[in-house]
């Protein structure tokens, strides 16, 4: 067995140069400080803000967040790596989520996943070179009655078979939700705000 050791003394530098986070982003993060007793508590909002702006949270970004919140960068990576929502490397325009939970697995989910891997030429949690697709797995998409289930951005593809994969990928609208968005799932305040905006 080869003696392989991951070297953690070397920093991961995604981009040399000036600070990643703009002053506006920093100001937005700082605006959350008043809401909590400690600056550390603003970590989750800060991560959301950075991911919304940059699309992902690079190591450089984590260090800058740590600097703003006056915590160690290890505390930031601890939280970032816990939530699958946060990405540490660039994600594609469309995210293909394949369910790997029991029902989908039993109905052939693994074959579907392998077919996606084959056709896209990428592995799990990776992005195609053209930046179009990222492939991930999720524990359950809450759609067991239509297993195996695949989610592309917000659109569900139900009862997917390996032979359907090519057609799904060829469809330019494979992530477009055709259904009317329900207001039921939005908080009352939000829907009011939206109504008044309309």
């Amino acid at each position: 067995m080869a003696w392989k050791v991951v070297d953690r003394n070397e920093a991961i530098v995604e981009a040399e140069g000036p600070a990643l986070l703009s002053d506006a982003v920093r100001e937005k993060i700082r605006s959350f400080f008043d809401r909590y007793e400690t600056k550390r508590a603003a970590l989750l909002p800060a991560l959301h803000i950075v991911q919304d702006t940059l699309g992902h949270i690079p190591h450089q970004g984590m260090m800058e967040i740590a600097g703003l919140l006056e915590i160690h960068p290890s505390d930031v990576i601890d939280t970032v790596s816990f939530y699958t929502h946060f990405w540490t490397h660039p994600k594609g325009k469309k995210i293909i989520t394949v369910c790997r939970s029991v029902s989908c697995e039993v109905m052939g989910g693994e074959a579907v996943l392998n077919e996606f891997k084959k056709q896209l030429g990428i592995g799990e949690h990776e992005t195609t070179p053209d930046g179009k697709y990222s492939l991930v797995t999720e524990e359950c998409l809450a759609n067991c009655d239509h297993a195996p289930c695949v989610l592309i951005n917000e659109k569900r593809h139900e009862g997917v078979k390996p032979e359907n994969v090519a057609a799904i990928l060829a469809d330019p609208n494979n992530d477009r939700v055709t259904m009317e968005r329900s207001t039921l799932f939005d908080a009352p305040g939000d829907s009011k705000a939206r109504d008044s905006a309309q």
């Binding site: 953690r8 920093a11 601890d78």
Partner: peptide
């Protein structure tokens, strides 16, 4: 720190901050 979740949990340091 503790990175990742569940069975993939690992003790780690931030890269470059040994």
């Amino acid at each position: 720190c503790l990175v990742n979740r569940g069975t993939r949990n690992e003790i780690d340091v931030f890269p470059g901050k040994p």
